[in-house]
Nucleic acid binder design. Structure first.
Lengths: 254, 254
DNA sequence: TTAACTTAAATTGTATACAATATTGCGGCT
DNA sequence: AGCCGCAATATTGTATACAATTTAAGTTAA
């Protein structure tokens, strides 16, 4: 890399800075759901002027973390339990479709081995004697990579984009479930189960079993749903999920 | 319309104006695919200042009609045949899923009758002695309404939004096929076939036949694909589709 | 006390000025 | 001719000033 200006183009540096900071503020709960986000407050906290702040607000609204207020400006979006399940559900559907197409296309050996590498690395983590925060974060990264690779194998830009849009909601991400139960005793059991599904999808892809690829990928998303449900029943652990503070659960019959 | 824009109020009037005009310019082919879109040119043509122009550019980029240029700014996005089929395919998948869920939920009589009204109105158009541009436009509007209602019946905000995002690409819209063959002699035959599918979906919904609802809704999107394919083979009629100029078809083996 | 009105502050939408970077066209050179 | 500097231009990203509108506070009247 001879040019420093290549990857993080300094042209939109201020906008990017504002965008990242704002997203962090929302996900960390620094701003609570339903709250207005005045531009001047962001100017003060980020040190950039209103123009890039404005661009960042538009982008975050597109991501779905903000929504326009009636009188102008934006408020932090609030989600309820139904939204969460809905998002996971649709993600499962899209990933299922992606898996099916991927299997139909007969992925190359190189692609398959990329996936296998992911699974292997995750296996290594699960096999460890103790699981700390470090390990969880590593697992999350690998898991996200696995899912991104899987979706990419469908070679459908539209599908890929659709999944990306949903996954920007942090609790809809394929790794939300990992953090959701990071304190539960049976964390390892869940990760292991998840890995079995990863492997099953992989096998189905390799075998061109498109039906099976789809159904397993779809079922895989149910793991996330069940886990979040379990977490919700215990009432507390939603804070562990990025953006968990955005979820307004009217805890009730379960 | 998108949830991101407050349409009624005069607060964002300039931005909205710029957004609408720019979209029109792109879809009408006033700007050709791959072309840069300088802000000052838009300032000149729309009469609003750079700030709302900028907002409009961001929004159109989000819609997918523009893409960011390496050196900053935006260019009109170009699509190829594969993109078009891909988009229609994914739309079909999503509408299929929506139809399935709608059937599972057992839509209310009121909802069903809304759909029935659409179909009825479209029937009336198809039954006419002659079909002119007027009739086609009416059919398009009704068809779009039918599809929007159908997707809405799934009661999945995430799914709805995903479809909306895809449909902003004009050639992926459920009505693209209507204009695609507006000059062909067998237009009425196609519309009739389309109506049969509309009716079949409706019946499946009423009967709670979720499998059937899904498969018919899915198949329905293939009609669009086949029609575009036929249109592409004849080489010319793509101009009839809104945004057809954005499609770079490397016409080849068909 | 509460409701309504008035005024001040805050906040957004818009326009414009400025700085940094990209692009273009031209002249000179090999 | 063809290619490389280099200046002139164009274009974007950012900051800030201004106007219109909304929100809030404070005051008065019932």
């Amino acid at each position: 890399m001879s040019r420093l200006t290549r990857n993080g183009d300094p042209r939109a540096a201020q906008t990017l800075k504002a965008q990242l900071r704002l997203r962090q503020m929302i996900l960390d709960g620094e701003l609570s759901a339903g709250e207005r986000v005045p531009e001047l407050m962001l100017v003060e906290r980020t040190g950039v002027s209103r123009t890039p702040i404005r661009a960042a607000l538009l982008r975050l609204a597109e991501e779905g973390l903000l929504e326009p207020a009636d009188s102008g400006g934006f408020v932090v979006r609030a989600f309820d339990e139904a939204d969460v399940y809905d998002a996971i559900d649709v993600r499962g559907m899209l990933e299922g479709a992606a898996a099916r197409r991927a299997a139909q296309r007969r992925p190359s050996r190189a692609d398959l081995s990329d996936l296998r590498d992911c699974v292997g690395a995750m296996d290594a983590i699960v096999a460890r004697r103790t699981l700390g925060v470090e390990q969880f974060l590593d697992f999350v990264r690998l898991n996200e990579r696995y899912h991104a690779l899987l979706v990419g194998l469908a070679h459908s830009p539209v599908l890929t984009r659709a999944v990306e849009r949903i996954v920007t909601l942090p609790f809809a991400s394929p790794s939300a479930f990992v953090m959701a139960q990071s304190e539960l005793a049976d964390a390892r059991r869940i990760l292991t189960l998840s890995q079995e599904q990863h492997r099953a999808i992989l096998e189905a892809l390799a075998a061109g079993a498109n039906e099976r690829a789809e159904s397993v990928a779809r079922e895989h998303s149910n793991l996330a749903k069940h886990n979040l449900h379990a977490a919700a029943k215990r009432d507390a652990p939603l804070d562990k999920i990025a953006g968990g503070n955005l979820i307004r659960l009217r805890m009730a019959a379960v």
